[in-house]
Design a protein around this nucleic acid. Structure first.
Length: 427
RNA sequence: GUGGCUAUAGCUCAGUUGGUUAGAGUGCCAGGUUGUGGCCCUGGAGGUCGAGGGUUCGAGUCCCUCUAGCCACCCCA
């Protein structure tokens, strides 16, 4: 019988990876908190309709990437492919709506998309994101970007560029859409199959086409910036002014469009140079002023972003290693097992992290393991120590060793630890 | 969803035109000190060669199918 392995496109986060992932997401949530964003959590699955209406049924996400299933009562449910629609739904049906806008929210958790897996691309992946809801002010767009930017700075992630665009709103986008169609209409037959399909389904998407046959026409195509209505134009100006105030560099990218239907006005992505070939974004976001109504709730303009944690972890400089036990307690003979366990428990209550090794293997083997555990010290308990009510305490990095009573262990280990942290090295 | 590349020990990889019991480094366990790690020496465990089928006297090696990963496309985080 073949062994059961994990589903395609999923990942087991082994301790080191788990630690790295948690560090990155907690850094994000911490930065968000420093901007006044509060964390919330929404269900992993939602009514399928939430995404069909919120994300848009012409998008790839909804058309072919959703994990949709019927539960036992026949309701159609979907594993969330993104979290903006769920957060807005939660906002709409809760008391959050009563708070003074904007309501600043953050989240981190798993998302699901049935896509072909690859590097930095999973069927279950994790996003960290924020949403600022209830306020149309463009300065908020810049604030959201600043949260993301500061987070990446804190992680020390270089080689990134912020791509910024405005795709207009309900007032001006239809005209732009028409202009685009008109521009391509005479040459429709000569366009690559894929681009014809784009024009039919979602004309704006042709802007990020990489098909060779469309290069020329794209270069001369009308630009979003030339079709923005006055309010959109002014809003976009203010976003840029605010970004300058935050001292965040950006590139205007009139061909930046996004794959989810709910975006209006400001859209942005952050690209990393190592991902450019694949056009893979580290994170993306924008403004979604009409989304709340689409879901059946009162108007609630908003702006937010979502970042792929796996990608950030992959590209960020490695962080510190996971915490190690401070002390390893070893039994040297079977008669000392009970004493070793008892000593370990007492020391844990004192506040030390203690790895207790009372296994049957040799003391030599335990010492080797202790060394590799990264612990500061080892306490050995054998027949002799039990008789004399003492422990043999050995500092691993120096080899110094002493016989101490249990009450002295905590202070001694802490002292060595301080010395390791601050007293060593070229001061 | 389309095309291409890959799959050998826990990890990184050798394996010569198909030819005996499939190797190295590292990691793991043990011995070299009746109770002491790191360096060194020695030994050991660990692989149905991704899975299934086929060709052949004989397949890790050739062919097919499947699965998974990677790359490009698509798309997004």
């Amino acid at each position: 019988m073949p062994p059961i392995s994990r589903p395609r496109g999923t990942e087991d986060l082994l301790p080191d990876q788990f630690f790295a992932m948690r560090r990155v997401s907690e850094a994000g949530l911490g930065v968000a908190a420093s901007f006044g964003y509060q964390q919330l959590d929404t269900p992993i699955f939602e009514a399928s309709e939430l995404f069909v209406r919120g994300v848009g049924d012409s998008t790839d996400v909804v058309r072919r990437e959703m994990y949709t299933f019927a539960d036992r009562s026949g309701r159609s449910l979907t594993l969330r492919p993104e979290n903006t629609a769920p957060v807005l739904r939660a906002f709409g049906e809760s008391s959050l709506r009563q708070l003074s806008p904007p309501v600043r929210l953050s989240y981190a958790g798993p998302m699901f998309r049935y896509d072909r897996p690859g590097k930095g691309r999973y069927r279950q992946f994790h996003q960290f994101g924020v949403e600022a809801i209830g306020d149309p002010e463009p300065e908020l767009d810049a604030e959201v970007i600043a949260v993301a930017w500061d987070w990446l700075q804190e992680l020390g992630l270089g080689g990134i560029s912020l791509q910024l665009n405005s795709i207009g709103d309900a007032a001006c986008r239809p005209a732009y859409r028409e202009a685009l169609l008109e521009h391509f209409a005479p040459h429709l037959a000569t366009l690559p199959e894929l681009d014809q399909e784009r024009l039919r389904r979602n004309p704006l998407r042709i802007l990020d086409s990489k098909e060779e046959g469309s290069e020329q026409l794209l270069a001369s195509a009308p630009r979003t910036s030339d079709y923005l209505c006055q309010p959109c134009r002014e809003a976009f100006e203010r976003v840029q002014l605010a970004l300058h105030a935050y001292a965040i560099p950006f590139e205007l990218n009139p061909r930046l469009v996004r794959g989810l239907d709910y975006y209006v006005r400001t859209t942005f992505e952050v690209w990393h140079e190592d991902l450019m070939g694949a056009q893979n974004a580290l994170f993306g976001g924008g403004r979604y002023d009409g989304l709340s109504e689409l879901l059946g709730y009162p108007p609630a303009p908003g702006v937010g972003f979502a970042a792929g944690l796996e990608r950030v972890v992959m590209l960020a400089p490695p962080g510190p290693p996971p915490a190690r036990p401070q002390l390893v307690v070893c039994s040297a003979q079977p008669v000392a097992v009970a004493s070793a366990i008892d000593a370990s428990q007492r020391l844990r209550r004192d506040g030390l992290s203690v790895l207790c090794d009372v296994g049957g293997r040799s003391l030599k083997g335990k010492m080797r393991a202790a060394e590799r555990s990264g612990a500061e010290a080892v306490a050995i308990l054998g027949e002799e120590e039990v008789r004399e009510r003492r422990l043999t305490l050995r500092r691993l990095r120096s080899g110094e060793q002493m016989a101490v009573r249990l009450e002295q262990v905590y202070v001694q280990v802490r002292e060595w630890e301080q010395d390791t942290q601050f007293g060593e090295g070229p001061a």
